[in-house]
């Protein structure tokens, strides 16, 4: 079996991944783990996010850029190889960051923003039809459900890392190694299970 093609590559030596979701979904932890795996693989890596006010239910994004020598910690629009939307609608909000040939991993979870809760705005009905991507470039994932199956619904972020790992040429053993040291002992098993459920999803 041939190795899966690294979809974040394009032709460039520096590649970008963008994670987007809502405060509290574990995005910062997920991107930290991703960076550690890349460092262990010998890559240069930079990541960037904004914390502070954004924690309070606002949008959270994390840019991860990696390659032989990374300068900017943030990607420019139209240059991201893989967009991971931890919340469905956020895939639409950050779509302009994605390369034309990029892929979107979309968590099938809806978190309503205030305007939708108040009935003043509509949550987009069918996000899949709004995503102007070929069907093969969109991977829908029920990460919350898989997290529950892994024994802890809060492992949703690690399920999504598992899905992401399919599109990257990073050794699975390195993922396991980093995951094992990223959590307190009693949470390691659930997170490893979550990762592998995501990886085969």
């Amino acid at each position: 079996m041939s190795k899966p093609k690294d979809r974040a590559t394009g032709e460039k030596s520096v590649r970008s991944i963008l994670m987007a979701g809502v405060g509290g979904q574990g995005i910062l932890r997920a991107s930290d783990i991703l960076c550690e795996v890349m460092i262990r693989t010998g890559l240069d890596v930079k990541k960037s996010e904004v914390h502070g006010m954004a924690q309070r239910g606002g949008c959270v994004t994390s840019h991860v850029r990696y390659g032989t020598c990374v300068h900017s910690p943030i990607a420019k629009k139209g240059d991201v190889g893989i967009l991971i939307a931890f919340e469905k609608m956020e895939a639409l909000r950050y779509l302009d960051y994605l390369r034309a040939e990029g892929i979107a991993i979309v968590n099938d979870t809806e978190i309503y923003p205030p305007a939708v809760n108040l009935g003043e705005a509509r949550y987009p009905d069918d996000i899949l039809t709004l995503l102007p991507l070929p069907p093969a470039s969109v991977k829908m994932v029920r990460a919350q459900e898989m997290g529950v199956r892994a024994g802890n619904p809060r492992t949703e972020n690690i399920v999504l890392l598992g899905v992401l790992s399919r599109y990257l040429t990073l050794e699975p053993s390195v993922w396991d190694e980093i995951l094992k040291v990223s959590f307190p002992a009693k949470l390691v098993d659930a997170n490893l299970t979550a990762f592998h459920l995501g990886r085969v999803a």
């Binding site: 809502v22 405060g23 006010m53 954004a54 924690q55 309070r56 239910g57 606002g58 949008c59 629009k77 139209g78 609608m89 956020e90 639409l92 909000r93 950050y94 779509l95 302009d96 960051y97 994605l98 390369r99 034309a100 923003p113 205030p114 305007a115 939708v116 705005a121 509509r122 949550y123 987009p124 709004l130 102007p132």
Partner: peptide, 18 residues
Amino acid sequence: EDPAYVPPVVPPRPPNLC
């Protein structure tokens, strides 16, 4: 060149009291 897509307008997600 402009980015490949112009994203549709989606409801904003401002920070909110918890």
